[in-house]
Design a protein around this nucleic acid. Structure first.
Lengths: 167, 167
DNA sequence: CGCAATTCAATTGTGTGCAACTAAATGACG
DNA sequence: CGTCATTTAGTTGCACACAATTGAATTGCG
């Protein structure tokens, strides 16, 4: 038990608690990822690719920029991902004629057809969570609140020092 | 599977709901990542590196295997990460004399010293969330429950089809 | 009109995360 | 005692995530 001697119990607890909090989210995300990986392998999609397809199924053709806004992802992530979906024959990419900077992303016939099989996914995931609809909704609300708070803190970095004063 | 294509609205809602649920977790994780990135850049650590350091500060020297069990990460992720921490002078790696397969990971003097500055991190993160201690504890509990359910489902893949029968 | 600022996608580089494989060491068993 | 299965790290390959940069197209403004 060499357990870092000089430090007080109080300090040790501070860091241990923090590990539990951030680690819980980290672990939940990876566990979710694992389940989606398993469920989605039938469709030949990764989890982020599935998210992209969900947006396309819901909204139809739209530029990379809009896609990134829906998913909070930038072109650095989306460009290679969309290329892989294009190679897989699920997605079509073409520069907009109206604005040559913009690239329109749309579904191929195959990509549209895949939606039928994707309808099974939510039920499978739901079964894996063991949560009922109310619990899921509640958890989602908390996560969204958390995300909003974290985004606000990032936008105003002094919040990270516990300051309440505005610059 | 009798469920096939008739009601378009129903189907659209199913996928839209799934997008909301899985996306909330995805977004929360990335938002948390962003805040940690900002707070940890003073310490020169990434978020996963910080998690590794937390385990080492709490438990002292231990083999890569144990470290992976604490963090649910395998050597494929830990090996390069630990090399970077070693290059940064925070961590020491040496093969165990007792079992030559095992590699013991311990803190350098510099790594131990970094703990002092890390004590500030939890307070900063807490301020960013805007959650009080009770809310954080409650959210953590739900996430842990979720993780346990998802892990159990992965271990028993028929659970992903909503079946209750055992093979 | 003409030039500067802005927008947008793509690229580059770093750091995970994980599956699949390799290689070395250990242990179990006949 | 030797063989083989198991354990443990490491390596490789692929797929995000994101910061920073590039380059092309567009817009704004005098």
């Amino acid at each position: 038990m060499t357990r870092t001697q000089h430090s007080t119990t109080r300090e040790a607890e501070i860091l241990r608690l923090d590990r539990q909090i951030c680690f819980s989210l980290h672990a939940a995300t990876r566990a979710f990822n694992g389940v989606y990986r398993l469920v989605l392998q039938d469709l030949g999609l990764t989890y982020p690719q599935y998210l992209v397809m969900l947006v396309l199924w819901e909204h139809g053709e739209l530029p990379v920029k809009r896609l990134g806004e829906h998913l909070r992802l930038d072109s650095g992530t989306l460009s290679p991902l969309l290329k892989r979906l294009e190679t897989a024959g699920l997605v079509r990419r073409e520069r907009s004629a109206r604005d040559e900077r913009s690239v329109q992303v749309g579904l191929t016939e195959q990509g549209t057809a895949l939606r039928e099989r994707a309808l099974e996914v939510p039920r499978r995931i739901g079964a894996a969570t063991g949560f009922d609809a109310d619990e899921v909704r509640d958890l989602q609300e908390r996560l969204d609140t958390l995300t909003a708070a974290l985004d606000a803190a990032i936008a105003r970095p002094d919040a990270l020092n516990g300051n309440t004063a505005t610059p």
